[in-house]
C-alpha cells in the first residue's frame, strides 16, 4: 500500500496540498480519489496546491490536466496554485503548457479566483 495524498473538504471546496515527492501510483490514486470526492461532496471547486513540489514531470502534468477536465465534467472548477518558477520553466521546455488548467500564484489567490468563478455567473445572470 502506498501513501495517499489527503483531500480536504472546506465548505464546497476540496483542497489538495501535495507535500511529498509523488510516486506514479499516488498520482493515479489522487486522480481517482478526487473524482469520487467531487461527486460525494457535490464540490464546486478544487484547489491543488503544488508549491511544495520540486518537480512536475509529464506524468504529474498530465494528471493535473486530466483532473481539470474530469472535474469540469462533474461541475467543479480546478485551480492549480503555487507552481514554482523553476518548475514552470521546466514544464515549458518539456513541451507541456497545461492548456485548460486554471492557475493562481498561491493558495489565497486561488481561493479568491475560485470564489469569483463560482459566484460570478449567478451574479451576472
Amino acid at each position: 500500500m502506498t501513501d495517499r495524498v489527503p483531500v480536504l473538504k472546506i465548505g464546497d471546496i476540496l483542497l489538495v496540498s501535495i507535500q511529498t515527492d509523488l510516486e506514479d501510483q499516488m498520482v493515479m490514486d489522487l486522480q481517482d480519489d478526487l473524482s469520487h470526492r467531487i461527486v460525494e461532496t457535490n464540490a464546486k471547486g478544487v484547489v491543488i496546491d503544488i508549491s511544495a513540489l520540486e518537480i512536475v514531470d509529464s506524468f504529474v502534468g498530465r494528471m493535473l490536466a486530466t483532473n481539470a477536465s474530469i472535474s469540469r465534467i462533474l461541475g467543479a472548477e480546478t485551480i492549480v496554485v503555487g507552481m514554482r518558477p523553476a518548475v514552470a520553466m521546466t514544464l515549458v521546455e518539456l513541451g507541456l503548457s497545461l492548456k485548460g488548467v486554471r492557475t493562481a500564484l498561491n493558495l489565497e489567490r486561488g481561493l479568491r479566483l475560485l470564489r469569483r468563478l463560482t459566484a460570478a455567473p449567478a451574479d451576472r445572470a
Binding site: E54, I55, V56, D57, F59, R84, P85, A86, V87, M89, T90, E93, L94
Partner: peptide
Amino acid sequence: VHQTKLVTAAS
C-alpha cells in the same frame, strides 16, 4: 533551474 530540468529528465 538546471537541477529541476535534470531531475525532471531523470524522472
